[in-house]
Amino acid sequence: MIVGQQKPIEELWGMLKDFKKIMVFGCNTCVAVCHAGGAKEAEITASLLRIRAAEEGVEMNIEHGACERQCEPEFFMPSIEKFKAQDVILSTACGVGVNLMSSQIGDMPVYPGLNTSFYGAVPQAGVFTEVCGGCGNCVLHLTGGICPIVRCSKSLLNGPCGGTNNGKCEISSEVDCAWYLIVERMKKLGTLEKLFEIQPPKNWGTATAGGPRKIVIEHIAELEEKEENKATVEVKK
């Protein structure tokens, strides 16, 4: 899932202090799981901003709301009338939600309430770890299910490097050496010989180095377009 962290209230106040009508809008999917931007956190953020406004002696109308997923218009468009009554929307979704809302709800500014951090796992409640870089060209079958792209500090495809130190990375004694984990894991799986195969330089064109990525499933996209056209024709009739 996508892991985010709330921006400090001081930073949010700096963004919002000149607006009068604010809607803090949460997303109940990934960022709710990481206790950063769900309906609950949106309400808390709204309350903290109201308290801050009272402290500053500024009159503001701060509302809150949420939808199940801000990364799809179907979920937030039903609230469009509420958005139109505001001066600004503070979205506590990930950056995807902020981008999409911003492009869909007209001239209304949409500001980020979170710092979107990474694609993470939840190994235990309250702990979120980065385990996938979304590079668009997965190599986990070659590395015992441990991603060398984000879990190795140098993103090495042929590790470990000389900085591995009793299973830890040279950047910090608290960071596991991914290549140590890979070797240990592949020993257990009996697939260590796979590591003798040297991996060629990675094509980063499938990652962000190749520009913004887009995937279209044609038959679904076409079906959607046809449905929309049909609806438009029916309305015209």
Partner: peptide, 19 residues
């Protein structure tokens, strides 16, 4: 209560004074 005293403060009072 945060800023309990805030109500009696002038509008332009900086936060450091309120605290």
């Amino acid at each position: 209560a945060p800023g309990k005293e805030a109500a009696s403060m002038p509008v332009s009072t900086p936060i450091s004074t309120i605290e």
